[in-house]
């Protein structure tokens, strides 16, 4: 039996939650929100999947690639996300997402499918990387940027990451990447299971000596649009290819 993760389990609210998060139609999400059916069509990876495992799965034809949590469970909001003809969905536990360089793996898959050219890749990869880093560190591991705001902040930060990754709840939270493309437009959404944040407090410009907020500067500069939904738990990046 998988541990409960903050109440975010498939249930009556799943379709509405997923639809709102990703800007999908509720009916589409409701149709796919049959846990048994969604699991049957997905590639399920064992907990602690390696980069090679993930790469091989993303190179196949399944839409959903899902890593099991440490208790063997695979439940998650991904079960409400309908299969898209032109898309892919990757759901990893935070422990795996932290070191897997997910942005590289997803961009490799997008390049292999002919979606991403070499020319556009580096901007997409950097933005996706920043969104994943935020989801993992600030979202799922609940480590505030201010952890680094002291002289030995980077030591404290490293220690907090280690401690929280070992926490059975925080380490098993999901970091999900949902990419869709149509014509010359690619949208990639990154979501987490943290507490979200107040988007009104995002600094307009975090240049200079600011120790945080620079990731959003990159995303805003390199993506054509950046949208934050689900109370700060989802960042959607839109690129014109």
């Amino acid at each position: 039996m998988a541990p409960r993760i903050d109440g975010e389990r498939p249930g009556p609210g799943l379709a509405a939650r997923v639809a709102a998060r990703y800007g999908l139609k509720v009916e589409e999400c409701r149709a796919s929100a049959d846990p048994a059916q969604s699991v049957a069509g997905a590639v399920l990876l064992d907990h602690g999947a390696t980069r090679d495992d993930i790469m091989a799965a993303l190179g196949g034809t399944a839409f959903h690639t899902i890593e099991r949590d440490s208790a063997g469970g695979a439940e998650g909001d991904w079960q409400g996300v309908p299969v898209c003809d032109h898309g892919l969905y990757l759901s990893l536990t935070t422990r795996t997402a932290f070191g897997a360089q997910c942005a590289v793996l997803v961009c490799d898959a997008l390049a292999a499918r002919g979606v991403l050219t070499q020319e556009r890749r580096s901007a997409v990869e950097l933005c996706l990387h920043e969104a994943v880093a935020n989801a993992v560190v600030h979202g799922n591991l609940e480590i505030a940027s201010s952890a680094k705001d002291r002289p030995d902040g980077y030591r404290v930060f490293s220690q907090l990451v280690g401690e929280r990754m070992r926490d059975p709840v925080l380490g098993n939270r999901r970091t999900d990447i949902f990419a869709r493309w149509r014509g010359a437009v690619l949208v990639i959404a990154v979501s987490d299971q943290g507490n979200g944040f107040d988007t009104a407090i995002l600094p307009p410009d975090a240049g200079g000596t600011a120790r945080s907020g620079r990731g959003f500067i990159f995303m805003r500069a390199l993506a054509q649009d950046v949208t934050v939904t689900d109370g700060g738990r989802c960042t959607a990046l839109r690129f014109e290819l």
Binding site: K148, R211, G215, I217, F218
Partner: peptide, 11 residues
């Protein structure tokens, strides 16, 4: 290099 890496250069 990502934004955290740039933060490390500032540190």
């Amino acid at each position: 290099i990502d934004s955290a890496g740039l933060g490390m250069l500032l540190i």
